[in-house]
Nucleic acid binder design. Structure first.
Lengths: 125, 125
DNA sequence: TCAGTAATAGGAACCATTACCATTATTATG
DNA sequence: CATAATAATGGTAATGGTTCCTATTACTGA
């Protein structure tokens, strides 16, 4: 069973209050201000626990560094290829294509992931 | 300018003749049979060179291990969450959503990437 | 043919993430 | 409340994919 530790609580609290999609490193830096001797392993361990329990989603759509967000209704993302930041997109999610692909391939399609790429406003200058 | 080496040729030849989306490790194992003392660094260096020159595409949609394929017309992928294999999907690519998202966000949208997830035929048993 | 230099092999370095382990802290239960 | 069982922690070592470094090799244009 899962216990409520101040480390886990602090991580969740931060994720609940940000719209950014922080990396483990960013989360570490932020939570370190509250719990100075927290270890990075604790960050990763908790992010994994929270992912398993469905409270957090990991976005590792491209490249090596994973980003995390509080679990929410299925939605799409935009990633800036310059600065790496990730933004939520409020385009309606089309679940019907999953069935269509399932039918045409014979695969069991559980979900799909759609990510737009380009330059965010800041990086267009 | 790019030179034609037997290492580069062997990598390209393999990619041209497979429909799988091999990892650098798999490519290494295969090409090693032809050029036994090839180094893994050469595999990665060439894959990057070929990516820069537009001959090869790197798929690093999820997780840490990249997969590669010969560049082809824009298309979508299915990734089996059990065995990790990647398959091409012949669903038509909808470029119009890029413009729609660009309009609603103010971002410059260059491309989008769509990946289906689930279980391939083999892993459904 | 040959000089200039891109590419190579091999191994070290890098870096995000995970594993390990002795210690600490949470929590169910009596 | 006391306590025992064990989940979680901090610190650090290990892992593994990928890149970097360097002396050497081998393409290629002239």
């Amino acid at each position: 069973m899962h216990r409520e530790t101040k480390q886990r609580t602090a991580i969740l609290k931060y994720l609940n209050n940000t719209k950014s999609h922080p990396t483990a490193d960013i989360i570490y830096d932020v939570v370190k201000k509250i719990i100075p001797n927290i270890s990075k392993g604790t960050i990763y361990r908790n992010l994994n626990v929270l992912k398993e329990s469905g409270q957090v989603t990991r976005l590792n759509i491209k490249g090596t560094v994973s980003r995390y967000e509080i679990k929410q209704a299925s939605h799409y993302h935009f990633r800036c290829e310059q600065c790496g930041r990730v933004f939520d997109i409020d385009e309606p999610v089309d679940k019907s294509i999953d069935e269509r692909v399932a039918k045409s391939t014979g695969f069991k399609v559980i979900r799909h992931q759609l990510e737009f790429r380009g330059l965010c406003k800041d990086c267009q200058r």
